[in-house]
């Protein structure tokens, strides 16, 4: 699982540098988000620009990150969802749970 982590003000941006987020790599993402939260990062913005395929396992990893961030007093947000990825969030109704932004700029404007 390749990710790029950058910090902007109080928000830790996690860019997923993979085309797929599925049962083969979702466990790694889950662990990496836990590591970030345990190292003191509270607010995670997950940038899914490069992800063109996500399954229930990938969604589960993001739900896990969301719950862990919230439990620690922080938040987890999503941005840059491809249309087909967005459709899976709508199918599972998780678009009503996550704050989903069109791009990083609009997310940081709201969160910063």
């Amino acid at each position: 699982m390749n990710i790029t982590v950058t910090q902007q003000d109080k928000v830790t941006i996690v860019a997923i540098d993979e085309k797929r987020l599925d049962a083969n790599n979702s466990g790694e993402l889950k662990s990496q988000m836990i590591d970030l939260l345990q190292s003191g990062q509270r607010n995670l913005l997950i940038d899914l620009e490069h992800v063109t395929f996500i399954d229930s396992s990938g969604i589960g990893a993001l739900v896990s990150g969301f719950k862990n961030a919230t439990a620690g007093g922080g938040k987890l947000f999503l941005c840059n969802l491809q249309q087909q990825v967005q459709s899976i969030f709508e199918l599972t109704r998780l678009n009503r749970v996550f704050d989903i932004f069109a791009d990083r700029e609009s997310a940081l404007q709201k969160l910063g």
Partner: peptide
């Protein structure tokens, strides 16, 4: 839950 959505999908 962070699992159990496979069959739903």
């Amino acid at each position: 839950s962070d699992h159990g959505r496979g069959l739903q999908i």
